[in-house]
Design a protein around this nucleic acid. Structure first.
Lengths: 145, 145
DNA sequence: ACCTCCAAGTTCCTTAAGGGAACTCAACCG
DNA sequence: CGGTTGAGTTCCCTTAAGGAACTTGGAGGT
């Protein structure tokens, strides 16, 4: 486990990044849109966007050339990060949802139903949560002195 | 989507919390162990632990009374947060793993095989990633003015 | 042609948060 | 009864975040 979490956090660890990714995912990809929606300072937003582009999770692309205008979009690498957000949403819904219920719902394309995500095993397809596994050292494990 | 991510980030949004949870999950639950393993400042560690206990994701319990000693452990609420970490690990393994391969492996109790987590639909059981869903406003959605 | 408005950033200043090392406190250990 | 260990606190200092104003460059109105 040791370092993959740290490496992921190195990319999206500070608090605004997940919210930026969420907004970009749902189509709020322009600078001022992001700034207004999140209430983040423009300075920090510019820093984060630059960082996320450098890390390859976002790409900056021109959607208008006549007046040069740009927007941000998820790369495949960034799209997979949204999986992390989906699990965060699930936890937030279960444990911190108000009396109102969840603010958003997911409709699954494949079955058309309102659903939430569950963690399953890549090998047998069964449920695979924190209590269903043993954690073993892998090939990239740090060597103990 | 809007606020469940923000609510989750409110609990574990700052960069050290996920690493603290990881350590507690794998059994590194004592103050000095955490401090040494993470290299976090003792001040911040104390703040974070207090916060995480307040939020109900960790509990502080006495494992020795003769000399009063304490350790931190995950509550059910906190254990479910580890699901988020598992997905982070998956992403870190896929996109940022070094030449060495992943630092840890999971063995799934149910099937005994080395596996990783995948996101599946709670209703039909099929794969359910960011590109497999429509995001709809839910009952707790903010009311547009 | 001029004034003005965007969108997308930068710059500057102030304030809050994090890092580091030293200090506290109580209890057991020999 | 002096030293050690676990679990924190306290102090200082440096870095990062927030906020508001400034920049740039092309468009659009009159």
């Amino acid at each position: 486990m040791t370092c993959s979490i740290a490496r992921t956090l190195d990319v999206i660890g500070e608090p605004w990044s997940p919210l930026i990714l969420r907004d970009v995912y749902v189509g709020t990809g322009r600078f001022d849109q992001l700034q207004n929606d999140l209430g983040i300072s423009r300075k920090v937003l510019a820093e984060r966007l630059k960082w996320l582009v450098e890390q390859g999770v976002l790409e900056r692309r021109e959607y208008s050339a006549k007046p040069p205008r740009h927007e941000y979009a998820l790369t495949p690498k960034g799209t997979e990060l949204v999986e992390v957000l989906m699990v965060m949403v699930r936890w937030g819904d279960r444990w911190t949802a108000g009396d109102e219920g969840p603010p958003v719902l997911y409709r699954h394309h494949a079955c058309g139903r309102i659903a939430h995500v569950e963690l399953h095993c890549s090998e047998c397809g069964g449920p695979m949560g924190p209590t269903d596994i043993d954690v073993l050292p892998g090939p990239g494990a740090p060597v103990d002195a």
